[in-house]
Amino acid sequence: MTATPASVLPLARPNKPRKAKASFAGWGFVGPFMLVFALVFLAPVAYSIYLSMFRNQLIGGNAFVGFDNYVRAFNDPQFWDGLLRVASFLAVQVPIMLIIALVAALAIDSARMYASNVFRIVIFLPYAVPAVVAALMWGFMYSDRLGLAGNINDLIGSDVLAPLSPQWLLVSIGNIVTWEFAGYNMLIFYAALRTISTDLYEAAALDGANQFRIIRSIKLPALRPAIIISIIFSIIGSFQLFNEPNILRGIVPNLISTFYTPNMYAYNLSFTGQQFNYAATVAIIMGVVTAVIAYIVQLRGNRAGQR
């Protein structure tokens, strides 16, 4: 923010004792967070890396195997199956969801809608619904027996609508995720739009710019940081896809394999297969892939912003 004279003042005159006290006080506030953070974030990551280097064998017990587990993962068709599935999910679902969110945020921010408050709150509301309930509701609505899909098929006398068939399943999951998070992303964009000074709009209008020109030249550039954050959160979310397919599995157990997504694969490896070392390896690979892609997005976003 703007540097007020008062905030510059302490810099002007050296005041060492207070500085020392302040540095101690800073850790007093940050310390508790970092302590728990180390316990539930840093320690598991370190332990995970350690686990991925070992293998539990019948003969010889826990043996150091170096990168063998990683080699195994790269040659594992089940791992690749899940990875490619979430990658294609990411490529299709995230753009659709973010465009819906962007259009909604621009529409609500434009002040050209009736009852825009109601729209903002209601469209955001699905975010408050637990993924379990969201997946159960949509899963029921998708199903033939007690769902809307069955009703509609009866109505038009065919069975075109089959959201839970093998070829439509991933799209159906994408719909659930879009429903859950479009409003959340809309709110992030909307919050960023509200920080734009209205002077800019007035100046643009005086220069004869129309709404679309204002969106292209003022609003979208101002939204860039928010869009980058949303893309990164969505990438993380897509690669972690677990809740929705895992719950739909209770409705269509035959269509969703134990390795449907890498996250489900790691979970099933651990808790039904007892292969903790290999599960940790899969999790680490997914963490690295996510971090690298998120980093590239941020880098490219920033570079494009400087141009």
């Binding site: 500085k19 953070f37 539930v40 974030f41 840093l42 598991p44 990164i232 677990f242 999790a283 963490g287």
Partner: peptide
């Protein structure tokens, strides 16, 4: 507050956001 290690705290926490839940869940368990 200005304190030694402030930037490191920030970098570590932001970096941790990218770590997927499963990478943590299995070892935490």
């Amino acid at each position: 507050y200005q304190f030694p290690g402030r930037r490191a705290v920030f970098a570590i926490v932001l970096g941790a956001v990218a770590v997927p839940g499963t990478a943590l869940a299995v070892p935490t368990f």
